[in-house]
């Protein structure tokens, strides 16, 4: 298929997945902020979301104070923030528009309808209805788009590039969410009773609460949460599961210039496949996750050069 077409499909998937995970991240932060705690530590947590996406400077240009209202507005519907849910869904739609002929009509309609509905909602309206309801809507629309994609598209390279983009983005985003929340939660360790709720909220935001119960049938501990989200192969949002999919997709689309990209994906996969959570935690989770995100970034670069923008 055309490299440019593949590029648009890949980014359409990445932006859709990014919007969904952003909704997940904001939702968990919002849920956690409902647990009794000081305003100062609350605002600190909202600041962490900005830091996570390196958006402090962009935010400061338009907003005076870091607080729940401002950060939500900025991350949900600010068109000037390239990382807001609004901007992600707009970019997803623009990429889809550029290759709408490659998409099935159901797919294009679900992407386009998502954008049309989003554009009709001001932040005030979203706030009025409850932000959690809005986050559910974003997750639902992302699921609809994914479902229509798998349910209607021919299983050819177009689908493989869509899946590759989605998996790469999901791996990165899960790592980001875990990195940030793990850090915050460990800091708050001494606050005791709220822990259960907070770890629970993190798991729920990644649709992993019931999965956790099923896999461990035991109390929630930070180490197990990390294990589930990083190493559990069967957990669809875990890093391991994403790496599985990335390796598989790269095999399907391989060309004469992609051997090095495939090798790197294989290394990334092996590091997850053969890891033990004790070792990961002993070496430092933050370092481990940062390294993972760097490798995902490199893979994205390699994919771009091998397939999407050939010289």
């Amino acid at each position: 298929m055309l490299s440019r077409t593949a590029d648009h499909l890949y980014w359409m998937a990445r932006y859709t997945e990014r919007a969904e995970n952003l909704a997940r991240l904001l939702d968990v932060s919002y849920q956690m902020s409902l647990v009794p705690q000081s305003v100062a530590s609350q605002n600190q947590n909202w600041g962490a979301i900005l830091a996570l996406n390196s958006l402090e400077a962009t935010f400061a240009r338009s907003y005076a104070e870091v607080n729940v209202d401002n950060v939500l507005r900025f991350m949900v519907s600010d068109a000037n923030n390239p990382s807001s849910i609004y901007s992600c869904l707009r970019a997803a739609r623009e990429n889809a528009h550029a290759v709408r002929g490659t998409l099935t009509s159901e797919m294009w309609e679900s992407v386009n309808a998502t954008w049309i509905e989003l554009r009709q909602q001001s932040f005030e309206q979203i706030n009025l209805g409850g932000v959690s309801e809005f986050f559910d809507w974003v997750k639902l629309r992302s699921s609809v788009i994914r479902g229509v994609t798998f349910g209607t598209m021919l299983k050819d390279d177009a689908l493989h590039f869509i899946r590759l983009g989605g998996l790469l983005e999901r791996g990165d985003n899960t790592a980001r969410i875990l990195d940030m929340q793990y850090h915050i939660l460990r800091q708050n360790d001494d606050e005791g009773a709220s822990d259960f709720y907070q770890w629970g909220a993190l798991l729920r935001s990644l649709s992993a609460f019931q999965v956790y119960r099923k896999v461990y049938r035991d109390a929630i501990t930070p180490a197990r949460v990390a294990e589930l989200l990083i190493l559990c192969q069967e957990m669809p949002r875990s890093l391991h599961s994403c790496a599985d999919g990335i390796v598989r997709m790269l095999q399907l689309i391989a060309n004469g210039a992609s051997a090095e990209t495939e090798r790197r994906a294989g290394v990334l996969h092996a590091r997850l496949h053969f890891a033990r959570i004790e070792d990961v935690l002993a070496d430092g989770l933050h370092g481990y996750l940062t390294d993972f995100m760097d490798r995902i970034y490199e893979l994205g670069d390699g994919i771009s050069q091998s397939f999407l923008m050939p010289a």
Partner: peptide, 9 residues
């Protein structure tokens, strides 16, 4: 000769 850039060359 005219060529298009594809993911397979």
């Amino acid at each position: 000769t005219v060529f298009m850039r594809t993911t397979q060359g």
